[in-house]
Design a protein around this nucleic acid. Structure first.
Lengths: 338, 338
DNA sequence: ATGAAAGCGCTAACAT
DNA sequence: ATGTTAGCGCTTTCAT
């Protein structure tokens, strides 16, 4: 087994000081006026023996870890999985690694995870924040650690975020249903104080009120166990046979809703028109295909990582935080036509 | 801004040697026969001021990073996303962090990523390996770094792996179609030398041959761009109007196949019976619901992390590698009945 | 232009 | 039972 090389080994083999090696490796040869010939010789040798500086030692010395902490709600949710994938790609391209984790929307778990990330000295944080972690974030910001929120933000915390226009999205979707002649339109969503969910709720209510219709909201407690989502939806639909349309607040609720509707034998769209937030294969392939609010996933990921890299690269400039709001598109399909 | 505390600060404040602190913090107080009263005092103070040892320094010193490298094919694929989620949970429970990345089945990218993981001194590797990285893995193993494969393995590399019984799964699914009276059964899959895909192919062929039927295989080049999967499927189905059943090799091909079938207006199952590998909402909710081969995702994740933690905890015992093969279930639904 | 040396924070062998 | 000290591998200041 070959021993791992250190910068000292290189220095000895080449009869050069390790300082010089370090400078050359870090591109400071010019600055330090190191002979071009030496630079070549070192680079050639380093390459030959495949020496890589020990990044842990580098981290200890410089205080940078070249790591970004990514906290999503649930990595197995397609929305977050896709975002994570795109962020990962761009981060690696820029020499950053990603450490990720799922918060499960659990405040305590999230606090623990922030502590762990902190111990690991991650250079920057990308977070889809659950409620109740304001202090922890403030503490990060106080120590000059860059934090970018996405999907939602914490109203009391001033830091960069990337979101979509939730309020308009549900307003628009609801209006579409109203335009199709629907009157008894329910909104089924998760119970959540988070900004994105609150905004979706507001958009729905606004559209209903503007048209003089009575809002009917069913809130479901967030749970990993699908049965605990399906049950309340079933109860709700059973209790309100007079509904002519339903707007689902998230993709997860949407697909659970479809299961219930299938189970109950309700016809879409003749008996019930349907729209879901988020747009995935399950909606596109459904019969009839389901009208859905599509988030611009690539743009979200792109914006998030750009904002963070930007902050990482210019740490001294205490720039104004950026608040980015992106647009969704309403993909109208068979499930919402009358 | 409060300065980060170090073990030295603690030692000074308490008028105790930092060795003692270190021993106490690492649970070696008993072993070192340190006074119980002192232990309490130290623990209390450490807790009070919120001191956490710098894990980077720990890593540098001990050579352990408490990090597991997880390399999946594509984190935005639900199969891998769910596995990742479960592995993440168990890893965090055991004090390990996960650094993950998507290989995209790209040999070169994977080699680079292994190098990166290595530089980061990850303690163990969980990999869904693409072909062509045999040497890199051998090199890891030579240096005593634990590697666990899942979803597939590399025949030339002897290390632990967790898989499903692919051959039987497709054999069984094909047999089911044959039992339903189908004769012209095609298998649409990705072109891949990987063991899981080869085994799926073999299972299909075996079933066909045993029944004296002619296998018809359409191989599609793996691509991120969905259009490049849909196009060849469309061409294939157009060219073979006499087919009465199709078995799809993966969930991704399966959902693309459904799109094609929908587009072409083919009736399931009257004109064409369908079975897909992997079982997700998109298949369950389809009309008619799609017969699917379900992988035991929880068991896979559980086995993988158990095998790895086991190796991590008993590094000296150069145990026999474990080869775990789990069973799938064939969930028969409307799409495959005659 | 190059080298010596300090030190990032921690662990553990060794000394007492 | 507790303290002293030598590094882990690297960067960077300061001296030459």
């Amino acid at each position: 087994m070959k021993k791992k090389l250190s910068i000292n080994d290189i220095a000895k083999s080449l009869n050069v000081s390790k300082t010089t090696i370090s400078f050359i490796l870090n591109g400071k040869a010019q600055e330090m006026r190191i002979g071009e010939e030496l630079v070549d010789r070192v680079l050639k040798y380093v390459n030959e023996v495949g020496f890589k500086p020990n990044s842990i030692a580098q981290s200890l010395r410089t205080g940078k870890s070249n790591t970004i902490g990514l906290m999503v709600e649930d990595i197995s949710n397609p929305f977050f999985a896709k975002i994570a994938r795109l962020i990962e790609d761009r981060a690696y391209q820029n020499g950053y690694k990603i450490i990720y984790c799922s918060t499960n929307n659990d405040t305590k778990k999230t606090k623990d995870l922030i502590t762990m990330f902190r111990e690991r000295h991650v250079d920057g944080y990308i977070i889809a924040p659950p409620e109740g972690i304001e202090e922890d974030i403030e503490s990060l910001l106080k120590d000059n650690l860059p934090v970018v929120f996405f999907d939602r933000h914490l109203p009391k915390v001033i830091t960069d975020y990337v979101e979509i226009n939730n309020r308009f999205s549900t307003y628009n979707a609801t209006s579409h249903l109203i335009g199709e002649g629907k009157k008894n339109i329910a909104f089924i969503t998760f119970t959540s104080p988070q900004t994105q969910m609150q905004d979706r709720l507001k958009g729905y209510k606004n559209a209903m009120k503007e048209s003089g219709l009575e809002p009917l909201v069913k809130e479901i407690v967030f749970n990993q166990n699908e049965d605990l989502i399906i049950k309340p939806i079933t109860d709700f639909l059973t209790k309100h046979p007079d509904l002519d349309a339903v707007l689902f607040g998230t993709d997860h609720i949407g697909s659970c809703g479809l299961k219930v509707i299938k189970e109950m034998g309700i016809q879409i769209p003749s008996q019930l028109a349907i729209i879901s937030f988020d747009d995935y294969d399950v909606f596109k392939l459904h019969s009839p295909p389901v009208t859905a609010i599509a988030q611009p996933i690539e743009k979200i990921a792109e914006s998030v990582i750009n904002v963070l890299l930007n902050k990482l690269n210019t740490p001294l400039l205490n720039q104004q935080p950026q608040f980015i709001t992106l647009s969704t598109s309403l993909n109208i399909r068979g499930s919402s036509k009358s």
